[in-house]
């Protein structure tokens, strides 16, 4: 038997053979397009004709124009706020399900948490508009209770509304990884910490939280990166001051017919988000090591 025949019969070849259709599809529809977007970001376009000469102009515009800088900064801020709010909202829920719900009913609770996620995406955002609006549910109830005299206007068509709506959309995705991480925490470690004299609060910060950190990191990444790309929520509930970079990208690709600039903006946004995510992961590694 030659080495080739041996290799062909071996595990490696069979695995590669099996995965090749999926891999080829992803290469063709993810890797190739991404490369093309990168290339596009170095080209220029007037109206509908594309000039394929290399230029950094799109990036210069994307990084120097105050409007783009401002949008980028605001998007980052909103994404971070959404991520922080989502993780903070999600952690107690995951903790409750993991530590307080009897094992048999955990699956049911997880299911309960994921149901609202399956409401139509657009409808869900729109309904937040109804809830937060001038004649909306919140204002209606607060006025009905006599707590306020006239409707609150700071709750819709601004960044707060965007943060709240996006946090609502992403919270199930944050609960799941944190829950999984908490489930993996060996309960005897927590008992040991208590046995060794830690108070409940210290025990949480010294044992439970560091051990569940991988779940928190996963939740952060899962929420933070995709959030920067949402252009529907800002459009529906954000008002003029709630628009984000994704709205600008969409505009460049669709109405403004400046796909190269849109590509440069998209890649810049991705690069920034990835850097922030990496810094976050690195800081967490230091935190966990420090806790030891």
């Amino acid at each position: 038997m030659t080495w080739f025949q041996k290799w062909r019969r071996g595990e490696g070849a069979q695995g590669l053979f099996l995965i090749s259709p999926t891999l080829a599809f992803t290469l063709l529809l993810l890797a190739v397009p991404l490369v093309l977007v990168v290339a596009l970001s170095f080209w220029t376009q007037d109206y509908l004709t594309l000039h394929r000469t290399f230029t950094m102009d799109n990036y210069k515009t994307a990084w120097s124009e105050p409007m783009y800088q401002y949008l980028m900064g605001r998007s980052l801020k909103i994404s971070m706020m959404v991520t922080a709010m989502t993780v903070l909202l999600a952690y107690p829920v995951a903790y409750f399900i993991s530590f307080y719900v009897p094992p048999k009913r955990k699956a049911m609770w997880i299911f309960l948490i994921t149901i609202p996620f399956w409401t139509s995406y657009l409808m869900r955002i729109f309904l937040w508009k109804v809830i937060l609006g001038y004649n909306g549910v919140v204002n209606g109830s607060l006025m009905g209770l006599g707590l306020i005299e006239e409707p609150l206007s700071f709750i819709l068509y601004n960044q707060n509304a965007v943060v709240l709506t996006l946090a609502h959309a992403w919270v199930p995705f944050a609960i799941l990884p944190i829950f999984v991480a908490l489930e993996r925490v060996d309960r005897s470690l927590i008992e040991a910490a208590e046995d060794l004299g830690d108070s409940k609060l210290r025990r949480f910060f010294r044992v439970t939280l560091p051990l569940s950190m991988p779940g928190v990191i996963a939740a952060t990444i899962i929420v933070f990166i995709p959030t920067i790309g949402d252009y529907v929520t800002p459009r529906l509930v954000g008002g003029p001051n709630g628009l984000m970079i994704a709205n600008m990208i969409e505009l460049q690709f669709k109405k403004a017919n400046n796909a190269p600039l849109g590509a440069a903006l998209a890649i810049s946004a991705m690069a920034i988000v990835t850097c922030v995510a990496l810094i976050f992961i690195w800081m967490n590694k230091k935190y966990i090591r420090g806790a030891k």
């Binding site: 397009p33 991404l34 977007v37 596009l40 959030t227 920067i228 790309g229 994704a246 690709f253 998209a266």
Partner: peptide, 12 residues
């Protein structure tokens, strides 16, 4: 982000 997937497929 889904917008990245949308954009890149559109370009291709």
């Amino acid at each position: 982000p889904e917008i990245i997937i949308g954009v890149s497929l559109l370009v291709v």
